[in-house]
Amino acid sequence: MKNLFLLITLLGLNLSLYAQNNQAVDKEKLFDFYQSQRYADAAQYLKSIYGEEPDDFKILSQMGYCFLMAGNNVEAEKFYGRAYILQPQNLPILFSLASINNKRGNTEKARKYYGEIVKTDSNNFNVYKLLANMYSSPKEDSVKLIYLLKAHKINPLEGDVAADLAEVHSNYQQYEKAYDVLDIAIKDDSDNLVLQRAKLPIANQLKRYAEVIASGEKLLKDGADAGVIKDVAKAYYYTKKYQKAIDLFKVLEVAAMQNEATLYYTSLSYRALKNYQQAAIYTKKTIDEAISPNTSSYYSLLGLVYEENNQLSLANAAYKKGLQFKVVPTLYYRMAVFYDTKLKQGKNALKYYILYLKSKPSLTDDKEEIKFTKDRIAQLNLTD
């Protein structure tokens, strides 16, 4: 019904333009294009009638709309842009230009058009919401907050804005404000699970652990959401229900969804239960999780850079530091060659060549290095 009304409106607009052009428009043909949603054909037909540069606002708007519906954003922007010159405060034109530029990644231009809308209509909730969504990086939180506050003031019950505003408040550690924003929206929409999940970490920050456990356990009945599990488990830890905390944290571990924080709290829970063996295991897991698996490779690269710059003591220190994180065959090989060629320390070179072979390098990828290592070990053994 809505589409039919739009077609009738557009057709009526087209009819009103007949008198402004010497060439008559075939209304049946145009209506057929609209009805069958052949907007590209409609746009080209209108262009054949009105030309490339009509100077009538309604014609430009109609052609811009047809190209927009046809997915031709370049042509749509061209005709809407000309309409904008004629009527720079026209809200539908501003919305269309902002939307087109947003889709094409022209963020600054989209912001400009949305900004012009709020100058004309300062109570437009949708524009403030759209503007807020265009500031996504943490560095832009201060600007995003301004638009979210304006949108929230107009409609404090809208869930998306409430969730986004609460997140920004949380980023500024304004947990009470974040909690209140979500609380208002949840009271209006008590079945909104997105808002309920968003509220849990904030309630934890405010030490409302009983609320987190009660609400979180209900949410877990609808599915094992990792974020909910983590928040409920933390609430159990802070209320000294350590075994329940461990049980939930292990659900994440089984699903390979653990992280440094969850492993850390698991270790603390075991320690609180005086299970020191498990506490030690999970402390080691926490350390492993906190360290990048590529750290040793980074130190290997650092050592190579120092070596190539003839900073041999720094190179030696970097290589050894890499071994503290993870033993990788490449690092042993680099150290062996380093001691062999740079420091001229045959015994140390021999030690690392042997360690390289014991570390099981790839027989296919490291074939040449393995052959060189074996030959060099034989030579070094002869010199001894």
Rank of each mutant, 00 (worst) to 15 (best):
K119E: 05
Y179C: 08
D160G: 15
D180K: 12
Q89Y: 01
F57Y: 15
L149W: 06
R82Q: 13
A163K: 13
H152S: 15
A110S: 13
Q173I: 07
S122H: 08
G64I: 15
D164Y: 13
G115D: 01
N106Q: 09
N126Y: 13
I85C: 00
R111D: 07
I154S: 07
I59C: 08
S122D: 13
K150P: 02
S170N: 09
V127D: 02
S61H: 12
K144S: 09
I154W: 07
F79W: 08
D56G: 05
A178S: 10
A151M: 00
Q89W: 02
Y179F: 00
D164A: 10
P88K: 01
M134F: 06
L165K: 06
K139V: 13
E158S: 08
L130G: 14
Y135K: 10
E53F: 12
R82G: 11
F125H: 01
S61F: 15
D160P: 11
M69S: 14
Y179A: 05
N155I: 06
K129L: 11
G71W: 09
N126K: 12
F79M: 12
S136C: 06
E116C: 03
S170Q: 10
V127L: 01
F67S: 10
N171T: 00
Q89F: 06
F125E: 01
A98T: 02
K150G: 04
E158L: 09
S96E: 07
L157I: 11
A70G: 15
S142C: 06
Y172G: 10
P88S: 00
K58D: 14
V168F: 05
D180M: 11
E116Y: 03
T107H: 10
F57V: 14
A166F: 08
V118H: 04
G81Q: 09
A163H: 15
H169S: 07
E75A: 14
N101V: 02
Y84Q: 11
D121P: 00
V161A: 01
Q173C: 05
Y65N: 13
Y114D: 01
N155E: 10
Y114I: 00
I100H: 03
S136V: 06
D180A: 10
V168R: 11
G105A: 01
F95C: 01
E77S: 12
L157N: 15
A110C: 03
Y147S: 07
M63E: 14
S61A: 10
G81R: 12
N90R: 04
Q87H: 07
R82A: 02
L157K: 14
